[in-house]
């Protein structure tokens, strides 16, 4: 399963990169989100994902069931998901602002300071 999921993670990265190399800002953002998803899955897969009971302590016990899933990567990924969500939200606002202000969603037409002195 590890091999299969390595393939999936690689595919998510490849798809994300392919989209990021497009000119339209929306596709770039979708690509970045895919790469983010890929990174989260990579952590999960690399740290030994398998079908297992969740890291919850059942009533009456003082530790999760034997063979439970590793809680630490879950906490890390959860943090990363929320951070990714926040950053994506800002990026969306930026994309919208950029399209409105610059009148294009074409990344090849972004102005730079060179030759634009007032």
């Amino acid at each position: 399963m590890h091999g299969l999921m390595s393939l999936v993670v690689g595919a998510l990265f490849a798809a994300g990169v392919y989209l990021m190399l497009k000119r339209e800002i929306l596709h770039v953002l979708v690509g970045l989100t895919l790469v983010g998803n890929g990174a989260n899955l990579a952590i999960f897969v690399a740290s030994g994902a398998r079908v297992a009971p969740p890291p919850l302590v059942p009533d009456g016990l003082d530790a999760p069931l034997a063979g439970h899933a590793d809680p630490l990567p879950q906490a890390l990924i959860l943090t990363a998901i929320v951070i990714g969500f926040g950053v994506l939200g800002f990026a969306l606002a930026l994309a919208r602002r950029s399209t409105e202000t610059l009148g294009t969603d074409d990344l090849d037409r972004l102005p730079t300071t060179e030759g634009q002195g007032t």
Partner: peptide, 13 residues
Amino acid sequence: VVVGAVSGFTLAL
């Protein structure tokens, strides 16, 4: 914070 952020994004966009 999460409530504020989610509604902030929504209202902003």
